[in-house]
Structures are given as structure tokens and as C-alpha cells.
Computed example of a mutant assay.
Amino acid sequence: MARRYDSSTTTFSPEGRLHQVEYAIEAINNAGTCVGLRCSDGLILASERKVTSKLLAPVKTSEKTYKISDECVLSVAGLSSDASILIGQARLEAQRYLYQYGEPMPVEQIVTQICNYKQSYTQYGGLRPFGCAFLFAGYDTFHGMQLYQTDPSGNFSGWQATVIGANNSSGKSFLKNEYNKDDAGIPDVKEGLKLAVKCLNKTMDSSGNGPEKYELFVMREKEGGGVEHKTLTKEEVKDIIDKVEEEGKAAADA
């Protein structure tokens, strides 16, 4: 019975489900993992890089994290071709707002615009949902540092820490136990980076991954106003991985 409604994006099944949207979410659950963390002094986005072939030329630009404006970036899980359309739309909206009002677009407003665009693809015939999910990390003077998650249905939600992509349920379970552990307060960026690597290790299929498999991004608020952000180099990533392994060995010995 449900098969009659599989090909239609706009028709509800008798159970009240939109199967094409659920299939899009399933495609995201098979993509590379992305972790987002709010820290006491910034934001962290950590992603798994899928190395499909050693013959591919190394790229100069990021594979998983994309800049939308000076105050907003996002990480992608899912189809990169679908994501590029939405990334272009987000950049356009952000620059239009900046040109019209002379100030950066609030992060939540960028997320709302993109989710409205996503939702329209679930409501009109002849279209299919976008097969990608985003983690938005950004800063504005209204709410400070913010982390949002979006999905193909057009829903979005704010988070302290979350995971999208493959094995996201095990990643979220890990964060529930380790983030703000024993009510000690949310971690700073230094501790958050180690926590993000541990979370990716829980979700990635293979063990002993090198720094080329990780992409770590940090955003911090500057003292004079505004934000600064960077993607960590391979050397910096390797240093964090080594620290995580040392802590793991020390815990095992204890």
C-alpha cells in the first residue's frame, strides 16, 4: 500500500508520512558524519572527510565546511551537488541583507530562509527534496554564538551539541554522556576539539584514522567585536588526535 505513495513528494500516505522526505533523510544518514559543539569561548564544527580515491588531486578549499558570511559558516552531510544550490542561496540572502541594511544578517534568519526554500521542495509537484542536512554555526549581536541543525523537510532546531550523518545516534549518545559531564559546565574550545575527535571516532567505521580523515573548524569571538574563524591544519589536527590517544591509553591503564 505504501508503495503507491513512494514516488510522490506532495502526497501523504494513509499513515500521514511523506516517503520521499524520509528517503532523503536516510540518504543523509549514510553520509560522512558532522559534529557541532557550542563551547564557552566559541563554536566547533568537526567533519569526517570521505577519501574516495588516492588519485584525486588535493583541493585548496574545504570539502565539508563552507563560509556563508564573515559571521556564519555551515557543515554539510549528504549530496554535495544539492548542498551547493542551497549554499549559493544562503550566500545570496546574506549579501542582500548586508547591502540593504548595512549590517550582517542574523544567523537564525539565514537558517529560516534556507529552510523555507527546502520546505517548498516538499510541497510542489515535479520536485524532490534536497538530499542534504546542514549544521549552521554563527554569531550575531542578538544571541551570540549559535548552532543550528536543518533537515530536508525544512525543519531546523538550535543545539548545544549535535551530530548529523552516519551513525549520528551513537554520536548523540556519546555527547549526552560527555558534554557538560557531571554538570561541570560546557567545555572550552581546547577541550571541545578533543571531544569532537572522540565523537567522530565513535561514528567512523575504521580505526586508526589519520588527520586527513578529519576536518576541524573553530569560530571564536574577537575582543574588539566580530568573530575570527579557521580550519585547522593537518599538523594541528594530528596534535589533537595524539592527545586523544594519550588520554585513552592513560584511562585504560588506570
Rank of each mutant, 00 (worst) to 15 (best):
97 Y>R: 10
73 V>G: 00
79 L>M: 07
105 M>S: 05
189 V>D: 10
107 V>I: 15
21 V>H: 06
249 K>W: 08
174 F>P: 07
158 G>Y: 05
101 Y>D: 00
31 A>I: 06
80 S>R: 02
237 V>P: 01
196 A>H: 13
233 T>L: 13
178 E>C: 10
144 G>D: 10
15 E>N: 12
114 I>W: 04
68 I>W: 03
36 G>Y: 01
203 T>H: 12
106 P>H: 12
76 V>F: 00
147 L>Y: 06
84 S>M: 10
66 Y>K: 09
193 L>P: 00
87 I>D: 05
212 E>T: 05
122 T>S: 14
78 G>L: 09
32 G>T: 04
193 L>G: 01
235 E>P: 03
111 V>A: 08
150 T>L: 07
82 D>G: 13
138 G>N: 14
232 L>F: 08
32 G>M: 02
16 G>Y: 07
90 A>F: 04
156 F>C: 08
84 S>Y: 01
25 I>P: 00
114 I>E: 01
247 E>S: 11
4 R>Q: 14
236 E>G: 03
3 R>S: 10
238 K>G: 03
129 P>W: 12
15 E>Q: 15
159 W>C: 12
129 P>V: 05
210 G>K: 13
248 G>D: 06
96 R>H: 15
61 T>K: 12
40 S>M: 04
137 A>I: 07
69 S>G: 11
138 G>W: 13
28 I>N: 01
146 Q>Y: 06
